[in-house]
Structures are given as structure tokens and as C-alpha cells.
Design a protein around this nucleic acid. Sequence first.
DNA 1: GCCAACGTTGGC
DNA 2: GCCAACGTTGGC
Length: 137
Amino acid sequence: MKYWLVKSEPSKYSWEQFVKDDHAVWDGVRNYAARNNLREMEIGDEVLYYHSNEGLEIVGIAIVTKTAYQDPTTEDTNWVVVELKPYKQFPNPVMLTTLKADDFFHNMDLIRLSRLSVGKVTQAEYERIVEMGGLTA
DNA sequence: GCCAACGTTGGC
DNA sequence: GCCAACGTTGGC
């Protein structure tokens, strides 16, 4: 089992909309590092869902339901999508400022590579964030 | 709205 | 293959 984090701007695709849809094709990734992470995802992996630009907090957890395949929104075979499904919502969303203030997270992709839209999360980071969010891992 | 960080493009 | 120019992302 691996752990990940995806970013979405709430004005484009919010967690609330994701929950309403109960499923999402994660398309539009056009960055090689992010793409490589998508390719490594396996069914059942847990994915933190982060609101960028507005909110700036991790709001919930998604589950990978389908591994990488060609992005249907482009002909370019460099790009792939995965499919995600909402899993749990955090009672207490974990704010970026909180993570930044804590040395424990200094090496996290989200902090170190602020522009990366699909990042890795270590198991230790994941468990700590889930706990901070008010859920038990 | 600004700007820093980073990725990509294209000239040489 | 280097590097300057440019575009985009995303925090502030």
C-alpha cells in the first residue's frame, strides 16, 4: 500500500463535488513528475485530497479505483489518468500552515515541491496527517 | 495581484 | 548540450 496526495483547486473541482460525484477521472495532469506518480498508483492506495489556491488544506482521503491509462482528454500518449473515489472526510482539515510549521513535514513533496500536483506521501507522514485530521489510521 | 519556483522551449 | 526566455503554478 502506498500513499499519495493530489491537489485540486476548489473552484475547478472541489472535494464537495468529488463526494457528490462519488468518483472522478483524474485527468489533465501535464507534468512528468506528477505523471510518474500516477503510474505508480495501485488499486486501494490512499490519496490525500488537498485544496490549492483556496482553502490550502487537506480535506479528505480518496482511494484509487483504477490504475493509470491513457488520458482521454488528449491524443498525446505521454499523459495518463487514474480513477479515484472518496473514502473519508477529515473532521478537522489539515492546513498547509500547520504542516509548514512542523519540522516533521519538511521533506514532504507538498512542502518541498510546492508546484507538484501529484505527490508522494510516506506512511509516517500519512498516519500523522490522518490523526491530525481527526481520523484514526 | 504579485512574484518565486520550476518546467519547457528554442536559439545557438 | 547549454542557457536565456517564457509560461504556469500556487502561496502570500
